[in-house]
Write a protein that binds this DNA or RNA. Sequence first.
DNA 1: CGTATATGGATAC
DNA 2: TATCCCTATACGT
Length: 267
Amino acid sequence: MPEGHTIHRIARDHSKLLVGREVAVSSPQGRFAADAERVDGHVLERIEAYGKHLFYHWDSREIGHVHLGLFGKYRISRSGDDGLPEPRGQVRMRLATDDVAIDLAGPTACTIDPPGVRRGIIARLGPDPLRRRSKPDAMIERVSRSRRGVGDLLMDQSVVAGVGNVYRAESLFVCGIHPLRTGTDCDPAELEALWATISGMLRQGVKDGRIVTVGRDESGVARNRRIPRSEATYVYKRERCLRCGSEIVRLDIANRTSYHCPLCQPR
DNA sequence: CGTATATGGATAC
DNA sequence: TATCCCTATACGT
């Protein structure tokens, strides 16, 4: 379930387990074996999240890069009486200490690179609302000068980093913006509000460990109450709008299914 | 058992 | 715009 919130949550959780320690790095599946060897046994100094990218800073000065893509997943297992459990399924990378193993399966990217690679990736990304001191200026500038649709622009990681298909649908819904509205037709105040909405949703996502967008603009909803998936979004993957009951419209935008409410988000 | 689907993105036209 | 890659899970037969 990888949008930006997942990545930042992983960086936070995995840091507690691995940072400052010598880490055994391996590739049970084999495809990462040559890279794994280069940092195996080194101390992990920091795990950094930027948009949907993860960077592992090793004391060898090399940097691990992981991008989960659509399918990538981590699994954590603890050491038992027989030590660490065998990897299950296709495990590209295993990061292990004496008491914990973190297994990565199905990533789009998993490499060990010189520092320039990280710099190049970050240079191509727009501002990430989850990073400290990030500002919406660059996003607003890009969007307001573009004739592309807002639904298209939000999926472009060089415009904003970390937004995926769920947050695209949900943030545009909350802001009442039709996904096909062009960037040039949005005024700066609207885009400020859109940034604030995205930022708030992503932060909530990091806390919850999943995407629950309902209740952000209402009062009195206990966020830690168990909310079933069917009530977690306003429009994403729904048949009818959670607010007004209108039939949700699906469009193909930027190669992905976009969802919007024709009544709450008029063209 | 098969098949469809998924919160992504690079690359080839 | 179309195609491909990566893996697990849900669901139908």
